[in-house]
Design a protein around this nucleic acid. Structure first.
Lengths: 186, 186
DNA sequence: ACACCTTGTGCAACTAGTTGCATAAACCGT
DNA sequence: ACGGTTTATGCAACTAGTTGCACAAGGTGT
């Protein structure tokens, strides 16, 4: 139940239309809580009927027109409640680690190329995060909002750093293995 | 679509009943692909009708009786195919990072305790991984199966190490902040 | 003026995962 | 022999997320 709260956060940062939200999810919030535009529109509808947000008055609220939303006091209260509430971490699921474990029984054939591809993806993501850091968090400023947001970005940077290092190691190991044959043939 | 493959991997490592699988998911595969017993039973049924696994013959296949499964050649082939196939990484979702970002707009009140709790959880998990490493991967042996499985465990260790460090830093930062008040009051 | 592309909003159907409960046998104390 | 706990299997309903498509308005080229 976090998507509504992701949207509330984004809207508090800046009132937006569905499409603007979608764009912002793609390059910011979506890094740790992704959502498609369909999800976002659906959720905006729910949040509006629940009285947590409202559409900003627009001239022609017809189809094909931008419709911006802002957070109402009830929405802010709900977000504060949710932020403070204790929550258990959800179990992670990582298909790549699973595949490596599978490869231990059925062989590593064909795996290497995809490991390399993942390595590149993570390298690219890491570079992007570093760009954002340089742009949005120059050495000087450290307001309390900035400090928290920087902390979040730092998590992203550290995670991508981990992945690139781990994938590098995994690739070296896989390359050093006998080959694609199962280690325990049927 | 990874649960069936997680199960196939587990069954190839060792044929098991539904409950045994559930237990093994809880302390091994589940670290990176968790599943409840309901999911597992449902999936075992599907895999059986699809001809990828079969129930090992048992005396009394009635309710309340253990029913073990083993992987058929078709199942092994499917797992090998899946392992080798290129897959895009699924977007992660991390509620804790989202909450931190929310806290930047609605304040950090109440957050600290839960950060501390998460830190402890990750420390405990890290300790458990280190135990497993000591037990299952002593310095000597390094068969190719072992090497791959060790790599997976290493990812777990490194990830938990990251989280404990990051949470430590986050706690320090949050504690140093003015208080629980919103940084940008309504 | 018409065809085409982009922007913006949205519904419907599907898939994967979660939660809550039901059932039955076996084992265990009294 | 009875009642409670553990082991073992499973169904049904729900929630969250994904995929595929539809539709309208506005701009752009011809």
């Amino acid at each position: 139940m976090s998507l509504p709260h992701a949207i509330l956060t984004a809207l508090l940062e800046k009132p937006s239309s569905g499409l603007e939200l979608t764009r912002r999810f793609d390059r910011s919030i979506g890094y740790f809580w992704s959502a498609t535009h369909q999800q976002i529109y659906r959720e905006l509808g729910k949040l509006e009927t629940d009285g947590l947000i409202r559409a900003l008055p627009a001239e022609q609220p017809s189809r094909g027109q931008k419709k911006s939303y802002e957070v109402l006091p009830a929405g802010r209260a709900e977000l504060a409640r949710w932020t403070a509430a204790s929550q258990d971490p959800k179990p992670h699921r990582d298909a790549l680690l699973l595949r490596l474990r599978a490869a231990a029984v059925v062989g590593t054939a064909g795996l290497e190329a995809d490991l390399r591809r993942h390595l590149e993806l993570h390298q690219r993501q890491l570079a992007e995060y570093r760009e954002i850091e340089k742009r949005d968090f120059p050495p000087g400023r450290d307001g309390t909002e900035d400090r928290l947001r920087h902390l979040v970005l730092q998590a992203g940077i550290d995670l991508e750093t981990f992945w690139t290092q781990w994938l590098g190691r995994a690739l070296a190991d896989v390359a050093a293995l006998p080959g694609g044959e199962p280690t325990r043939p049927a």
